[in-house]
């Protein structure tokens, strides 16, 4: 048994953790796993970042408070929060 870090990338519609979540990616600490689009998923696991916090996830990275750069050459959809959960894994 080992304590490992699970990472959840959740993008919100604004920098408010209670704003609707737009996208998610779960990075599991298991060798060989990759982040994939799941075409069979029914929506996201959490409606907001706050819902994930209520479920025990801890925010370890907040989106850049400067927000979107006006007239930028590239766009990123959503404001990305990174959350972690430390859990026991049976390797």
């Amino acid at each position: 048994m080992a304590i490992k870090q699970r990472l959840l990338y959740l993008s919100g519609q604004s920098m408010d953790p209670r704003s609707p979540a737009i996208s998610q990616a779960l990075h599991e600490p298991i060798e060989g796993t990759i982040v994939e689009i799941d075409p069979t998923a029914k929506g996201l696991d959490y409606a907001t970042v706050h819902d994930a916090v209520v479920d025990g996830w801890r925010i370890v990275h907040f989106p850049d408070q400067r927000g979107s750069v006006y007239d930028s050459d590239v766009e990123v959809i959503g404001f990305q929060f990174i959350l972690e959960k430390l859990e026991e894994f049976n390797d």
């Binding site: 990338y9 609707p20 996208s23 990616a25 982040v35 994939e36 799941d38 998923a41 990123v76």
Partner: peptide, 10 residues
């Protein structure tokens, strides 16, 4: 940045 995005809500 897209490399760290999986499922989108819509």
């Amino acid at each position: 940045r897209n490399a760290s995005q999986g499922n989108f809500r819509d």
